[in-house]
Each structure stands twice: as C-alpha cells, then as structure tokens.
Amino acid sequence: MIKKYLKLWKLLAILSAGSILSNRIDFVSYLFGKFIRFGFFFAFILAIFAHSNSLAGYGKYEVIFFFLTFNIVDTLGQLFFRGIYDFRNEVRLGNFDYTISKPVNALFFSLSRAVDLIDFIFLIPIVLIAIYVGFQIGHATIYNIFAYIILLFFGLFVILGIHIISAALIVWKTEAENAIWLYRESMTIGRFPPEIFSPKIKFLFTYFMPIIIIISIPAKAFLNMLNPVWILISFLYASLFLGFSVLIWRRGLRHYSSASS
C-alpha cells in the first residue's frame, strides 16, 4: 500500500511539474521572485550585521541559520502540501466529488496534487548554504544535527496538521475561506530568532500558531541552545495536533457527504 502511494506521489509530482513548466513565463517569474525574496531578506540580515554585532544575543551566522531553517521548513511544507491552495476551488466546482469516488485517500490526493517544482529547485541551494553556514558556526555535534533533523520532522507534522485543518474547514463550511493563509502570513515571523519578541507574543506563536515549534526549536537544537525537554514537548505537540487535525477532517468529510448538493 505504501508502495502504491509512493508511486502515486511521484507521479503527481511529475504531472504537477509538467503543468508548471507548461507555463514558462510564470515559471521563470516565480523562480526569480522567490530568489529575490530570499536574497532580499538575506541582504537585510547582512546589512543588520554591518552595523551591529548581535541581534537578541545571536551572532551573524546564527541569525542566518535561523533564517535558512525558516526557508527549509517553509519550502518543504509548500513542496508537500501545496494542493491546499487549489482545494477550495476543487470543492467549490464540484471536482472533489471525483476525488472521493476514487480508490485513493482523498486527503492525500488533494494535498499532493500541486507539488511545486520551483520549491524543489529552490531547496537545493538553500540546503547547501545551510550546510556551509552550519560549518561556519562550527560547534555542531552529531547529537545537534540529529536533533535538528528530528525536530524538523516534528515541525513538518505540525505543518501537515495545519493544512489538514484548513482542508477540513473548506469541506465543512462552504463559506469558509482559505484559513491556510493565516498560517502562511504568520510564518514570516519565523525568519528571525524568537528572542526578539516579548514573552506574550512568544507564547502566542509557540502554542497557538506554533511557528516557533516548527522553526525556532530545531534551529536552537542545532545551535546547542535547546533544553532537551523541548524535544519531548515538540513530539507531544505534533502528535496531538496531527491527531486532532485528522479527527476534524473526518468530521468535515462526514458533513460534506451529508450536505453536498
């Protein structure tokens, strides 16, 4: 079964890439746009450190590392779950009916339909730069790297949960707009270390819109600044959140099947 879904995902990714590449102007523009966006924030950070030695106690490479982690996580989320942005239209136009009448998991299919080739291309240099910066920082141990990767995974589960909830809302309430945008807009605060924020804002973005769990926790693990208890917290939070989101999705789907017309 897993094999089927892996094969299917690969195929969907290829199809989606084909779709994107068939729009050449858009493809090039988005690619450039994303690089400019990245480059611009990067330049901002460099400019900050041209005039100051620290931001909230972090040095240049550390701040850059936070920023890169943000990009990696954000891009991975987009890579896997981008179908959510078309989902609202799919439901509105009635095409979702096709999806649920097929022998495939409707949630998987809808979220994975729009894998973004551009993000995939974008990810490669980012990861390379991250490795370089990681070396510059110097003192990472195997434990740090391992913790970083694990916590990124947990963060991705949280992101998945957010997307699932958003999908559930779309299917449940016909008037609901795309709640996923709340997440997308909030993600921007993950570009910088969380220490710049006041305690209340930190709390908000840790537990309610868990950007800090998704981005800052892994980054701190790498920088050897993380209290290990956070690994447990992150795991628990991700599991509960994901479980909760799946429950909501099931309810939403039941409702859809009772009310679609």
Binding site: N23, R24, I25, D26, F27, V28, S29, Y30, F32, G33, I36, R37, G39, F40, A43, F44, A47, I48, A50, H51
Partner: peptide
C-alpha cells in the same frame, strides 16, 4: 501578451518590497 500574469506580478511585488524601502531605510546599505 500572455495568459500568465500572476508570475510576473509576484516578481514585481517582491522586487518592490526590497527596493522601495518597505522593510528598512535604504541608507543602511553601502
């Protein structure tokens, strides 16, 4: 000229974010 207008728009908007000084005074640069 093209059906695809969202891409160029995206590019335009981010170019603007950077060079209009929306985030920080441009004088911090060299």
């Amino acid at each position: 000229w093209s059906r695809e207008a969202m891409g160029p728009r995206f590019l335009f908007e981010w170019l603007l974010e950077f060079s209009s000084g929306a985030y920080f005074p441009l004088s911090v640069f060299s």
